[in-house]
């Protein structure tokens, strides 16, 4: 039996008496890409934040490979890679040092870092400090942090944001390779081209 890579069951989140997520449920098998769709304010980012443990849902649960996705569980943190909007940078570490730190923290070495830098076009900026990066380069660095470490589930919040045309083409290609490698990808996106190019499943919320 194949265990779902990601299961969300009855997830609800309220801000005061405003219901942002109401009983959201879905499953995602390994090697599948799902997009969360919904109008502005429908709770897409809140859903992704609850899935990665950046926010606490009021009800429901998230399972990663059949295991309750408690963010305090090191096994869960090892399995789930995420690039959300809340990422921040050490002002005194260069681009390459950020990536090497993530690789090291996950028990790996610096081997994939150079390749990811090249893939994302960040090589010229490898020694730059974050404050000198453009918003597009920062976005690429955030995405790169997911690809220098092991992962079975990848969570991306509007990954196409601030990427140029070539960057978006790379992103689509990269997501296909993630799928081929068996990673389950959950993303929120407003880019119909990206969605049509890579997405297997659509999860509609807030309608």
């Amino acid at each position: 039996m194949i265990v779902d890579a990601l299961s969300v069951r009855g997830l609800s989140r309220n801000f005061g008496n405003l219901v942002v997520l109401d009983d959201v449920s879905f499953t995602l098998a390994p090697g599948r890409i799902a997009v969360v769709l919904g109008p502005n304010g429908s709770g897409k980012t809140t859903l992704l934040r609850c899935v990665v443990g950046a926010d606490r849902p009021d009800a429901g649960e998230v399972l990663v490979q059949g295991r309750r996705a408690d963010e305090t569980d090191p096994q869960v943190r090892a399995l789930v890679a995420a690039a959300l909007d809340d990422i921040d940078f050490f002002p005194d570490l260069s681009v390459v040092e950020h990536l090497e730190l993530v690789a090291y923290a996950h028990g790996g070495n610096a081997e994939p870092v150079e390749e990811v830098l090249a893939e994302l076009g960040l090589e010229p900026a490898r020694d730059q400090l974050p404050v000198t990066l453009s918003s597009g380069q920062r976005r690429r660095l955030a995405l790169a942090s997911c690809f220098v470490r092991p992962r079975r589930v990848l969570i991306l919040d509007e990954p196409e944001q601030r990427l140029d045309v070539r960057g978006r083409q790379w992103l689509a290609d990269r997501l296909r390779r993630e799928r081929d490698a068996g990673t389950a990808v959950l993303l929120a996106s407003h880019d119909p081209e990206l969605i049509d190019a890579v997405v297997d499943e659509r999860i509609e919320i807030g309608r």
Partner: peptide
């Protein structure tokens, strides 16, 4: 800090 969360404590340490 948000930076530590993003780059260190998100790891399975």
């Amino acid at each position: 800090t948000p930076a530590t969360q993003s780059w260190a404590t998100s790891a399975p340490v």
